[in-house]
Computed example of a mutant assay.
Amino acid sequence: MFKGSMVALVTPMNEDESVDYQSLEYLIEWHIASGTDAIVAVGTTGESATLDMKEHCEVIAFVVNKVAKRIPVIAGTGANSTSEAIELTACAKKVGADACLLVTPYYNKPTQEGLYLHHKKIAEAVDIPQILYNVPGRTACDMQPETIGRLAKVSNIVGVKEATGDLSRVAKIRALVRDDFDLYTGDDATAIEFILLGGQGGISVTANIAPSQVSQAYNAALAGNADLARELDAPLMEAHQKLFVEANPIPVKWALVEMGKIKSAIRLPLTPLSTDYHDVVRGALKQAGVL
Results as ranks from 00 to 15, higher is better:
residue 259 M to I: 14
residue 1 M to C: 09
residue 264 S to R: 09
residue 185 T to L: 04
residue 160 V to Y: 05
residue 55 E to H: 06
residue 92 A to H: 07
residue 248 N to F: 15
residue 221 A to E: 02
residue 105 P to V: 13
residue 251 P to F: 08
residue 263 K to R: 15
residue 17 E to S: 11
residue 48 S to G: 13
residue 103 V to C: 08
residue 43 G to E: 12
residue 279 D to L: 12
residue 120 K to S: 10
residue 183 L to T: 01
residue 166 D to C: 13
residue 213 Q to P: 04
residue 205 V to Y: 06
residue 100 C to Y: 05
residue 241 Q to N: 09
residue 181 F to H: 03
residue 96 G to V: 00
residue 189 A to L: 13
residue 142 D to G: 10
residue 117 L to R: 12
residue 168 S to W: 05
residue 68 A to P: 02
residue 87 E to G: 02
residue 46 G to R: 06
residue 277 Y to L: 12
residue 206 T to V: 07
residue 274 S to C: 12
residue 215 S to A: 15
residue 75 A to Y: 11
residue 148 I to R: 03
residue 201 G to W: 05
residue 228 L to F: 03
residue 273 L to K: 15
residue 68 A to Q: 06
residue 90 A to W: 10
residue 180 D to R: 03
residue 25 E to T: 15
residue 267 R to M: 11
residue 282 R to H: 15
residue 231 E to S: 15
residue 96 G to W: 00
residue 264 S to I: 01
residue 53 M to I: 12
residue 2 F to S: 00
residue 40 V to Y: 08
residue 194 F to I: 02
residue 233 D to A: 04
residue 77 T to H: 02
residue 15 E to M: 01
residue 130 Q to L: 14
residue 224 G to P: 02
residue 21 Y to S: 07
residue 30 W to E: 13
residue 186 G to I: 00
residue 60 I to L: 14
residue 3 K to M: 01
residue 216 Q to L: 09
residue 180 D to W: 06
residue 31 H to F: 14
residue 201 G to R: 00
residue 104 T to R: 01
residue 116 Y to N: 04
residue 215 S to W: 03
residue 146 E to P: 01
residue 76 G to A: 08
residue 239 A to G: 09
residue 137 G to W: 02
residue 63 V to D: 04
residue 89 T to C: 14
residue 38 A to W: 03
residue 183 L to C: 02
residue 214 V to G: 05
residue 61 A to K: 14
residue 26 Y to D: 15
residue 233 D to F: 10
residue 113 E to A: 15
residue 174 R to C: 01
residue 218 Y to V: 10
residue 123 A to S: 14
residue 83 S to N: 11
residue 98 D to R: 06
residue 84 E to S: 11
residue 129 P to T: 06
residue 23 S to L: 10
residue 166 D to T: 07
residue 3 K to C: 03
residue 180 D to F: 05
residue 161 K to R: 10
residue 81 S to M: 13
residue 39 I to W: 04
residue 97 A to H: 14
residue 93 K to R: 15
residue 110 P to E: 12
residue 104 T to E: 09
residue 238 E to W: 00
residue 260 G to A: 15
residue 145 P to F: 02
residue 278 H to L: 12
residue 159 G to D: 04
residue 127 D to H: 15
residue 183 L to Q: 05
residue 280 V to N: 10
residue 206 T to K: 02
residue 227 D to G: 00
residue 175 A to Y: 13
residue 112 Q to R: 11
residue 170 V to Y: 08
residue 283 G to C: 12
residue 76 G to F: 02
residue 165 G to Q: 15
residue 285 L to D: 08
residue 281 V to H: 13
residue 113 E to N: 13
residue 160 V to R: 10
residue 61 A to Y: 00
residue 289 G to Q: 09
residue 110 P to W: 09
